[in-house]
Amino acid sequence: MDKQEYRVGLYTLFAEMLKEPTVEFVQELPDMAQYCREAFAALGYNIPLAAYQGWGRWAGNIQALKDAYLRAFIFPPDRRLVPVESIYRQWTFDETAEVPIAKEKGYLMSDAALHMMELYKQYGLEIPREFQSMPDHLCLELEFAAFLLERESAERQAVYIRDHLDWVGDLYQDALNLDIPQFYREVVYVISLFLAHELQAITEES
């Protein structure tokens, strides 16, 4: 497997880890941790094994992981993590916008979301119903990165990753501040480290 295949695999894997867990997903957690170890080594990304080696202990414990998912991302509303790019961006950079929230953060459907919608349209992709109000949810953005890695030039891939995946470090800080369940703290941490390496590699190549 070459480096590009490992990158596609990691983007796809991390997208799945942000969705509600299934029985099949939980059963495969030990293999996922092993895949991360192999992929990071192949890519030369220094991501500590301690950050993800414990994922396998959740294997077979679907109810515990479902509970952790709900507490991390769904309920209670004031203590949940919202892995959506718009939340971390200025709502719009349109100087003519007169709405009060124009220059604020923390709102859905920002310029970033509208741009993601346009990208999906360009490639003939549909937004799943559950993500209609947040087309820039991190799991969709990771899936789209994998899509581009398989179909587009390195330059176009780099532009997308730079433009849409540089905010996940802030997401991890919120995961810490909100004290979300450990499994999902670890997931967001590993994703943030992976994307930091991706962004660094892009900068070094440009």
Rank of each mutant, 00 (worst) to 15 (best):
Q122G: 04
G124N: 03
L125A: 13
V82K: 01
V168S: 08
A154R: 13
F147D: 08
Y172Q: 01
Q27R: 05
V84L: 10
E126M: 11
M134L: 03
M1F: 14
E5C: 06
Q182C: 10
F144H: 03
L142W: 06
W91P: 09
F25D: 00
R80W: 01
A68Y: 09
Q200F: 06
R89Y: 04
L13M: 10
A41V: 11
F147V: 03
D67I: 15
R89P: 08
N46I: 06
Q63I: 13
R37C: 04
H197S: 01
K105M: 03
D179S: 03
Y107R: 04
P76Y: 00
I127D: 07
E118N: 11
N46R: 05
F183L: 13
P100K: 15
E130S: 14
E186D: 15
D94L: 08
F40R: 13
A97G: 14
S153K: 08
P30C: 11
P135H: 13
E143N: 10
E118K: 13
D179F: 04
E141H: 02
G9H: 08
V82D: 11
D111Y: 06
E141M: 07
V187G: 00
L114A: 09
L165H: 02
L65C: 07
D111H: 01
L138R: 11
R89I: 12
I87F: 07
F75I: 05
L195P: 06
P77R: 02
A97N: 15
Y123G: 03
A154M: 05
V159P: 10
E141L: 11
Y35V: 02
A50L: 08
H115T: 07
K121S: 15
P30G: 02
W91A: 12
N177R: 11
P30L: 05
A39L: 08
Y120R: 09
A39D: 07
E5A: 13
T96L: 13
E20R: 00
F40N: 08
I74K: 00
N61V: 03
Y45R: 00
D179T: 04
E130I: 15
L149S: 14
R185T: 07
I161A: 02
Q4D: 14
P30Q: 06
